[in-house]
Nucleic acid binder design. Structure first.
Lengths: 343, 343
DNA sequence: ACCGTCACTCAAAGCGCTTTGGGTAGATGA
DNA sequence: TCATCTACCCAAAGCGCTTTGAGTGACGGT
């Protein structure tokens, strides 16, 4: 069923039917009702493509998901983020189109989305420091919003980020207050912006307590369970091992725990652990009492909000870029305790 | 830059330019080369919408991701599956459009995708037993392919599935051969087709060994870490506890391990664990030696293959529905060992 | 010299919608 | 009574592409 057929069926012109359906005022209430009802019974909905062609809007948002070509790894937070964003799009009648792409050919993808006029805007995932995509998108004149930020790029642009620096500074402070002095950091991949900011927060806290970051206690890599495990195992095997570990992902934290327990230690007693928790739906941090003390911020909420911001920017192109900084909450669980006394 | 401008620029008609770009034979090689070059320098690519309108194809595949409205949970395998499928689409010039939707309104979504002519086909995720979506899609005449199967629906349709029954039968056999007699099953949500088949395989093996499935040892639910933990903890606390656990997801298996170790047991010695492993990129099962003995099948490969199948079906609508059954490989890790002797 | 063939190229219609720029009939005010 | 509004409604153009059906010039065969 298309507009033409529907309007013939009703004995009206396409114009009138279109107007009735799109809420224009030049249609009598009676006619509008009649049209709406017919649309429903014939199960008519306008072709997105035709509508897009006619209006010049795509009614779609692109998400470009980079897959690190080295690790072939899909960021585990991606599913939840998308779920949040998807809700928002659905509510606003937008479609979400996804491009999975190895980070080498990202540029081409953005250019393609733009020149094919496939989307009204894009969401940028996993920004790195000095991420070139931001300048690219700005030069392409394609509306965009970034999940995270790119340190080193100082033109204004739309982003939404967790206050990673503050979160990790507070977490480190917390461990300090418990008496820990040897605090390890198991962080995300070098170059990722969030990892950079978390390390800054961590370092700032250490400095404030007259400690200095010890390179031996800082690791970064793709945040898998195995990564958390191997890092922790190695560090615990050395002289002067850490009494606490600060970890960038709940998944890695599971590996941290494995290493601790394998060594015969008890988490929260011999070694304390704090992790960031993205509140992923399939990885809750325990039940009522969190297993891990964590800095927590829902990535699903982030998706919802960022989508909202992008849609607003598209609807109102003259608006200056919005930004939003979310604070993570520190949830105390049973993975932390006072530093063991040195005997 | 659009076709009209490009063709004016070249002093050719739109027809010729279009034909040159789309590889039709009625264009001289010299002209074709000239056109291709111009397209490249002007960074021209045709508008998907216009092309779609003109050809009647959407050049897009829809993925409808159900979110269980009860649990608000995004299936963790989703990211990797999508990554696999996305590769295939990119190679074939297709776009992937995603709808996140609570399972109540799925029907409307499929109807919408169809009537808006937004996609050429859809991938069905997370089929349940007697899943009504299959009949719906068949009646809508919208090409589709299912990741998994729906027991109870016996018309032919396109699907790709892991041989869940066989995998779990073999896994159970394996545990039996190690001397285990009390084998627990921690399975996915009741009603999910894969969970049903896995339980069948499990039960079949027990029956073949003159055992009978003990309801006390069978759990099903959303496969989170916490779920694996609580199930295992409870079962280990009872009389006549299991000496082995068969688990449907690596994430839950992490919880199983936690419960085992919390109790002071050693995995692979006091309690053996076998899990299904979807080979998720962020959750490798250990390094060279798998941590968990596992039935393994890459969900990313599955995505790639299923996308391939769907595209083939769309290209050739008369072809009978393809199906593909993947065998999981049993990888022996260090989480299994001979059943402890009863003292 | 004429006629087919080839090898290219083109104008125009059509895909399904929105939107512009009217048109018409009835009601209203002078 | 007539001009002027309203309130509705319509025909047609246009969005950027593909595709049909037709045209043109060059060339070889007779």
């Amino acid at each position: 069923m298309n507009l033409k057929e529907l309007s013939q069926n009703l004995g009206l012109s396409q114009t009138t039917v279109s107007r009735a359906l799109n809420g224009y005022p030049e249609v009598s209430p009676a006619t509008r009702r009649r049209v709406e009802e017919a649309a429903r019974t014939f199960n008519y909905s306008p072709s997105t493509r035709a509508k897009g062609l006619a209006t010049g809007k795509a009614l779609a948002i692109g998400h470009v998901i980079p897959i690190s070509s080295k690790h072939e790894m899909v960021n585990p937070i991606f599913g939840d983020f998308i779920a949040g964003a998807g809700e928002t799009y659905a509510r606003h009648g937008y479609e979400m189109i996804l491009s999975i792409v190895d980070d080498a050919s990202e540029r081409r993808i953005y250019e393609g989305l733009k020149s094919r006029r496939a989307v009204d805007g894009v969401v940028v995932h996993g920004p790195r420091m000095d991420d070139p995509r931001i300048a690219l998108l700005q030069s392409l004149d394609l509306p965009f919003a970034v999940h995270g930020r790119a340190s080193g790029y100082d033109q204004p642009y739309a982003w939404l980020d967790v206050n990673n620096r503050r979160a990790f500074e507070r977490a480190t402070d917390f461990l300090f207050d418990l008496g820990h002095r040897r605090i390890a950091l198991i962080n995300g991949l070098e170059g990722m912006d969030f990892a950079h900011r978390r390390r800054e927060g961590y370092a700032a806290s250490l400095m404030a307590h007259d400690g200095a970051p010890d390179p031996d206690l800082m690791r970064s890599g793709e945040m898998t369970e195995v990564f958390g495990y191997t890092c922790t195992r190695d560090m615990l095997a050395r002289d002067n091992p850490p009494t606490a570990v600060l970890c960038s992902s709940l998944i890695s934290a599971l590996g941290v725990r494995r290493a601790i327990e394998e060594k015969g230690y008890v988490m929260g007693k011999d070694v304390s652990v704090v992790t960031h928790d993205d509140a992923l739906s399939y990885l809750q941090n325990g039940g009522d009492v969190p297993i891990f003390t964590a800095t927590r911020s829902s990535v699903r909420d982030a998706g919802q909000q960022l989508a909202e911001m992008l849609l607003a920017a598209i609807a109102n192109p003259l608006m200056p870029p919005q930004t939003r900084l979310l604070e993570a909450e520190l949830m105390v669980g049973s993975s932390t305790g006072p530093a063991p006394r040195k005997d």
